[in-house]
Computed example of a mutant assay.
Amino acid sequence: MREFIEQLRSNGKVTDIRHGVSREFEAPRIAKKIQGPVLFHDIEGKKAIMNLLGTRDELAAMFGVPRDKIIQKLSEVQPDGEVVVVPGSPTMEIVDEEVDLYSLPIMKHFAKDGGLYITAGIVVSEYEGTMNASIHRLMVLGKDKLAARLVPP
């Protein structure tokens, strides 16, 4: 991620906001006015980036292909190796700290929002043995709870 941000910065595509801003309305309002990725260095003491893949140009840069080759690149992606489901992993362990979503720079974007939202969160779910990953707007309900609107199909 850092390398990709630096690549975009070297091409003049990242706007750095170094002064402190609020997560409630201010950071989203600033990002909306700026075309391209915006790296905030101090949203209530945390770093956050918005609009990282806001255009096909950024997506193409991430994949290292011309803009008109994005679909071809995505269609050619193959798993690297075999997927092995394991019963446990160190990544599943919570170490010495409780989850606290409020400690992350999750933002409130609009006056009528019911709370803080992750605007493009990736949800990995499994139902009857079928696994899927999808992108959702996730609302923070508590320090360790999110709500997602899941609609079929």
Score class of each variant (00 low, 15 high):
V83S: 05
I122T: 08
D113E: 10
I94Y: 12
E82L: 08
V95F: 15
M139Y: 13
S103A: 15
I106V: 13
G114R: 03
L138N: 00
V83G: 00
G121N: 11
H136M: 06
S103I: 10
P90I: 11
L141R: 12
D100H: 08
D100M: 08
V84G: 04
G114T: 07
S89H: 12
G129S: 04
H109L: 08
S125V: 02
I106G: 11
V123C: 02
Y102W: 08
D100V: 01
H136E: 09
G81Q: 01
L104H: 12
V123E: 02
D113H: 09
M107H: 13
D100T: 04
I122N: 12
M131Y: 06
I94M: 12
S103W: 07
V84F: 02
N132C: 04
R137I: 14
H136W: 05
G115S: 03
G115H: 06
S134H: 01
S103H: 10
L104S: 08
G81V: 00
S134R: 01
S89Y: 00
M107W: 06
T119H: 07
G129E: 01
Y117M: 13
K108E: 14
E82C: 00
E126S: 02
I122W: 07
E128D: 08
G114K: 05
V83L: 06
S103K: 13
L104N: 09
L101H: 05
E97C: 03
S134A: 12
V124G: 03
I106A: 13
L101D: 11
P87G: 03
T91R: 03
T130E: 07
A120T: 10
G81D: 10
E93Y: 01
